[in-house]
Computed example of a mutant assay.
Amino acid sequence: MAQRAAIVTGASSGIGLEIARMLGEEGYALTLAARRPEKLTAAADGLRAKGLEVQEVAAALSKEEAVKAVVAAHEQRYGRLDLLVNNAGVGIGAPVAEIETKRLDMQLDVNVRSLVLFYRECVGLLRAAAAEHRGALVVNTASISGKRGQPWLSVYSATKAAVVGFTEAMNKELATEGIRSTALCPAFVDTPMTDFAKAGGVAAEAMITTRDIAEAVRMLLKLSPACLVPEIIFERPGDPL
C-alpha cells in the first residue's frame, strides 16, 4: 500500500497534469481521471516513464456513475486517499442572450456537480487518512472569475463562485476532523483553456504558469494541521482589481 495517495481530475493536461507531476515527485501514488482516454493515457504514460506510480481512469465526470467508478478504482488499487484534487472544469463563453441550455448544463455538471459528488464519495477515505495524520487535503480549482464575475463568462464565473462557496462550507464541516480544503483562484494560466485569451492578445509568457499553481499546492502539503488556507488568489501584474 502506498504511504500517500491522491486522485487528480482533469489530469490529462494543463493544471491537473502539472499538479499530478508534482505530487508524484512528492511520493504520492496517483489516480488520474479525465474525459478523453487517448489523451489521458498519454499523460499517464509520461508520468510512469518518470518512475511515478500512476493509474488512469477515463470518465465523463459529469456523470454520477463515472465519479463512483473513479473512486472505486482508486480505493481498489491504493486502499487510501490523502489528497483529492477537483480540477476538472469547462468554460464556455457567451453573452447572456445567447447562452445555450446544453452548454449551461455542461458547466454546472462538470464544474459544480462533479465536485460535490467527489466529496461525497471520497469523504470516508479522507476521514480515514485524517484519523491517521490529520493532514487530509482537498484542492478545488476555482478561478479569479469566481471572485470577480466576468461578462461573457458569466456561467463559468457563477460555477467557480460556487466552488469557492462550497470549499468554505466544507472547511466549516470537515476541517476540525483534519480534512482541509483550499480553492485555487487563478487569473489567466497558460493552458489550452486560455487559447481564446491568447488569440485576443494576451501573450502566453504574460500568463501564470501551471508550475506556479502546482508549487502552491506543494506548499499546502507542507503546512501543519493547525494551518488552514481556504483559498489562494493568483493575479498577474497589472490585472485590474
Rank of each mutant, 00 (worst) to 15 (best):
I232C: 08
R211G: 03
T210P: 01
A197Y: 07
G178T: 10
I208D: 01
T176M: 03
R211Y: 00
L184Y: 09
L221V: 08
E173F: 04
G201M: 07
M219Y: 13
L221F: 05
K222L: 10
A203D: 12
T191N: 04
L220G: 12
T167Y: 13
A183I: 10
R236F: 01
A216G: 11
P230V: 11
L228E: 06
A226K: 12
S224L: 12
A203T: 02
P230L: 13
E231C: 03
A197W: 04
F196I: 11
M207V: 03
A169Q: 07
K172D: 07
F188W: 13
P230Q: 10
A197I: 08
P186D: 05
L220Y: 10
A183W: 11
D190F: 02
V189T: 14
F188V: 12
L221E: 06
F234K: 08
A169N: 03
E231P: 03
R236M: 15
G178N: 10
G200I: 07
T167W: 14
F196Q: 02
I213Y: 04
F196E: 03
I179V: 15
M207H: 01
A183Q: 08
V229A: 04
V189S: 00
D195I: 14
T176F: 01
V229M: 07
A206G: 07
K198S: 03
L174F: 15
